[in-house]
Nucleic acid binder design. Structure first.
Lengths: 253, 253
DNA sequence: AAGTGGTCTAGACCACCAG
DNA sequence: TGGTGGTCTAGACCACTTT
């Protein structure tokens, strides 16, 4: 039994590459700096371009890099903290809301949304589209579903659509007594329209925040917000949030 | 001008593939069912295996598929809702805590953690390792950093390590008055050790939940929890959480 | 027009799991 | 041992941005 037997577990090349690049980013590069192009980098490391790309993809996922077609790969700034938990117990559109209305339409929602709202499958609901800007960058897009029953005072001919209509719907919403809310966060990939708004390619990783608003003993509104996962850190306290991460080492025991 | 000019934007093959597969999953497959292998699927759709894999990767990211080397690709069950917001204002290890202690050691934390705890860069802190099981599955792993100053009553010789030591540290923690806490969620990729615990490959997408616990006017403990992004939906309300998603259609304006 | 990242191919070999 | 998904290669072409 004199065999060492610990040289097994050959680390994948792209994984090792990622480690090397991470260390290089930490020590030799500054935010905004452009990296050599993929073909050069691959040649420098002696791997195929696809292998290098596998490493770059992960680094982009972790928010360390930013890649733009036709331009190049740059070192990303640290993720921005985006507060999603401070507006606790306030309706969307209330004072100090971080969202900007884009437009509004009356249409039949996806089946899953209709189920959560307990409306009929084909019953149209007010669908408000909003976007959120933070640190000068578009970080999220939202679809807010509001059943007609939640805004009974809305006059039908105020404005058919557009931001004026949006504001009218949100104004009416404030009249209800908000009884509570409910949030969930999960990983998703951007659909084509979301991607365009967020200046990403379709399929880009996003954090989907689903919020249910309760009033009158039922779900009075439902928000589905899509945040860029590469650039955002969602914070739930009232403070700006910690900036932990990029750990070099690890536990022992 | 009579030109149609709307046939541009050639959709990538893998994107179209993903759409087709999604629809097939919704209509023709049930949870747990195994798909044909990648080589067969690629041939059936007339694409290279790498292209098919690009589509499968996204579907796995979205929690629709589960792939295991040596086994095959199966239809994943809906994501499980994991409550991370109900233990508001309670120390880790308090009654009803969802986490199971694994072990514990006194060691110097990563630089970023030391900074958040305001301890010296080389000062060792109690590092508690815990794991979380939900619906019979390991869904998360956690490292909990507790400066010695937060557990002054801890006798040094109770137990050097192991779960006994872990329990002693957490017990001492309960004696402090918790003044508040702070949470952040971001996307990350699993390190080798986390991946092993979560039964995933290194680099798998994870949701990293960072929690700061405040007491005595400072950060008395810091938790970094790593959740499987493919199988988990983090819920922040007190209800089990909505199950929205898999939208077929979309707004009009 | 030149240069970048994004997509795609047709192969090869490896690590893992089951029979 | 045979079948699966995971890694890797060396090319090609495309879409996009900048010059």
């Amino acid at each position: 039994m004199g065999t060492t037997q610990l040289d097994s577990v050959p680390e994948p090349k792209y994984w090792h590459l990622k480690t090397v690049l991470t260390e290089a980013l930490d020590s030799e590069f500054s935010v905004g700096e452009i990296l050599p192009n993929e073909r050069d980098l691959a040649a420098r490391f002696g791997v195929a371009r696809a292998t290098l790309r596998q490493a770059l993809e992960q680094l982009e996922l972790e928010g360390r890099l930013q890649r733009r077609r036709g331009v190049g790969t740059t070192v990303a700034p640290p993720r921005v903290g985006v507060a999603v938990g401070t507006e606790q117990h306030a309706w969307p559109g209330a004072e100090g809301d971080a969202w900007q209305p884009v437009d509004c339409a009356l249409q039949t929602p996806p089946a899953a949304v209709a189920a959560a709202l307990e409306t009929g499958a084909d019953e149209p609901v007010h669908t408000v589209h909003r976007s959120r800007v933070s640190h000068g960058q578009r970080v999220a897009t939202e679809l807010l579903y509001i059943p007609a029953a939640s805004v009974p005072g809305l006059t039908a001919i105020d404005a058919p659509s557009g931001t004026a209509r949006t504001r009218a719907v949100l104004r009416e919403l404030q009249h209800l007594a908000l009884e509570g809310q409910d949030r969930a966060v999960e990983l998703g990939s951007a659909r084509a329209d979301d991607a365009k708004e967020l200046d990403r390619l379709p399929g880009a990783p996003v954090l989907v925040v689903t919020t249910r608003f309760f009033a009158q003993g039922r779900t009075a509104a439902l928000s589905v917000a899509t945040y860029r996962a590469d650039t955002c850190r969602l914070t739930f306290g009232d403070s700006p949030g910690v900036e932990i991460h990029h750990d070099p080492e690890r536990r022992a025991s």
